[in-house]
């Protein structure tokens, strides 16, 4: 059990229960991540991918099931307390940063994640050198723009900064929710490159949702496919290395039982 970082057991989450709009988003989801796993997550619309990340993050409580992170049961912990252990990057580049605050202030907030807020300075001079160095490693020319408002930056730059912020406190788990989906292909590739580097450098256990099957195959050591609130495909190691997009489509067809044609467009 020592090597387990995350264990989801029997997670159920219903939206609008008891109404005509009731939707079972997670339907007894089980998933175990080992330390250092970099898992890519694919699945059609409404498969429960984002819901799974939100359940782990504690955006709301799950209806049933347990979430254990590095041996600690966090099922009942409020979102802001779990944040200490989690790094998160969202699909919407606007969502991961505070637009009206400076780049350095955003980084300073992240460097205080999980720390009790006091009347100490929100940012100290000594931090700035470190931030400048971190930003220069991104190679996006941001190191000279520390005091600029994040709202002035492009989506790709904001996602890169959000990644830095997510990784800053050495989280137990990095959650990436289609964080390149809103970017143009070239920027998406850059952000993925940065992601890969940050994950490696910090040896982070990572869950990355992507709509791009090629990315799902190319990155990480393990791939899972979700369907109707459950994991239906789970491949890792060499088997994953050999995967092709066609294989994935095939697997999806088999596992989901005939809904292949409906979801084909979404998955490819």
């Amino acid at each position: 059990m020592d090597n387990v970082m995350l264990s989801l057991k029997g997670i159920v989450k219903k939206f609008n229960p008891g109404t005509v709009n009731e939707k079972v988003a997670l339907n007894g989801l089980d998933l175990t991540l080992e330390k250092g796993d970099f898992v890519t997550v694919i699945g059609g619309n409404g498969a429960g991918k984002s819901t799974m990340l939100n359940a782990i993050s504690g955006v709301w409580r799950v209806d049933s099931g347990s979430i254990v992170l590095d041996g600690v049961d966090i099922t009942a912990l409020p979102e802001y307390k779990r944040a200490k252990y989690l790094g998160r990057v969202f699909q919407d580049p606007m969502m991961g940063t505070a637009a009206d605050m400076q780049i350095e202030e955003n980084l300073a907030l992240a460097s205080r994640r999980g720390k009790r807020k006091t009347f100490a300075p929100g940012i100290r001079n000594s931090e700035r050198a470190r931030y400048r160095e971190m930003l220069s490693e991104l190679d996006l020319g941001l190191e000279s723009r520390l005091s600029e408002k994040v709202g002035m930056l492009s989506g790709g730059q904001r996602q890169a900064i959000t990644l830095l912020m997510a990784a800053m406190k050495q989280p137990k788990l990095l959650l990436l929710d289609e964080h390149t989906a809103a970017l143009d292909p070239k920027t998406a590739a850059t952000v993925l490159e940065i992601t890969e580097r940050i994950v490696k450098e910090n040896d982070l256990t990572t869950l990355m949702i992507t709509h791009n099957m090629r990315d799902a195959i190319a990155h990480g050591n393990r791939l899972i496919m979700m369907h109707e609130g459950k994991v239906i495909v789970d491949v890792s190691g060499e088997e994953k290395q050999r995967l092709t997009v066609e294989d994935l489509l095939e697997m999806f067809s088999k596992a989901s039982g005939g809904e292949f044609s409906n979801d084909r467009a979404i998955l490819s």
Binding site: S57, Y80, A83, L86, G96, A98
Partner: peptide
Amino acid sequence: AMSRAQGIN
């Protein structure tokens, strides 16, 4: 949302 993700109550 960002604030809660950064551990702010």
